[in-house]
């Protein structure tokens, strides 16, 4: 049975990489029914024109909400139009569209509510820098403590959510640096989280939202946020 799958592509100034991502997505041939949805988070470049030149639905946010707010807009769309699954795929080209199939296969095999595409299980492809990896192993431990699930790549934005998870993300989703924190929200809601190995590439264009100067701030902020999400009544 073909499922309705929404591919949410949050974009902020991605006009250089977006054509590759969208072309790759349109070239995919899968059993399920994929619908790309570009969320243009008030980009200052030509992201809007580039996205609209493809035959895809584009949501242009009138103000910049940050990655979390942009992605949550996609989840709201998925809920409103009755999609079975939602996949987040970053617009910077880090997540190759061909890898979507792996998430869908993992979903049909495990029936987990959330499938995370992870760089660190098979250790293939782009592995991110040394400092970044230290941070990621730190988040691995935080997640084990707070969410009780071993997730190796908790900062990965390449994920699949089912209906239950979408409903949960629509209710509350953090707005900056949302990935590690959202896992705790999902775990507290009793959702099942699984990780599958995927191969990621260097982002084609643009920079990470986490720059080196602010990475300490990022760690502190996310740690506090994760802690309070953990003790907050859901």
């Amino acid at each position: 049975m073909a499922q309705k799958v929404l591919v949410i592509i949050p974009c902020y100034n991605e006009d250089a990489s977006l054509p590759t991502v969208l072309a790759g997505l349109q070239a995919l041939r899968l059993d399920d029914d994929l619908k790309p949805l570009v969320i243009n988070d008030c980009s200052k470049d030509n992201t809007r024109e580039v996205a609209e030149s493809f035959n895809v639905t584009v949501l242009n946010l009138p103000i910049n909400l940050g990655i979390g707010g942009a992605v949550q807009t996609g989840f709201k769309y998925a809920l409103r139009y009755g999609f079975d699954l939602a996949i987040q795929l970053d617009g910077d080209g880090q997540h190759p569209p061909d890898e979507i199939e792996k998430l869908l296969i993992a979903r049909s095999q495990t029936q987990a509510n959330i499938i995370i595409g992870s760089r660190f299980i098979d250790r293939k492809g782009f592995q991110s820098s040394f400092l970044r990896r230290i941070g990621i192993s730190y988040f691995y431990w935080l997640n084990r403590i707070f969410a009780g699930v071993p997730v190796y790549d908790s900062t990965s934005g390449f994920r699949l959510l089912d209906k239950k998870a979408i409903e949960c993300a629509v209710r509350s989703y953090p707005d900056d640096y949302p990935e590690p924190e959202s896992l705790i929200i999902f775990a507290k809601a009793g959702l099942k989280i699984k990780e599958v190995p995927v191969v990621m590439s260097h982002r084609l264009n643009g920079r990470s939202s986490i720059r080196r100067g602010s990475s300490l701030y990022y760690m502190i902020k996310v740690t506090i946020a994760m802690f309070f999400t953990f003790i907050r009544k859901s």
Binding site: I220, K221, I224, A225, F228, I231, R232, K233
Partner: peptide, 19 residues
């Protein structure tokens, strides 16, 4: 401060400064 954050009335980044 902790209570305010738990009740979702204070964002964590402001809480950092106060803490």
């Amino acid at each position: 401060i902790s209570r305010l954050i738990i009740k979702n009335r204070l964002r964590e980044e402001y809480a950092i400064i106060w803490s």
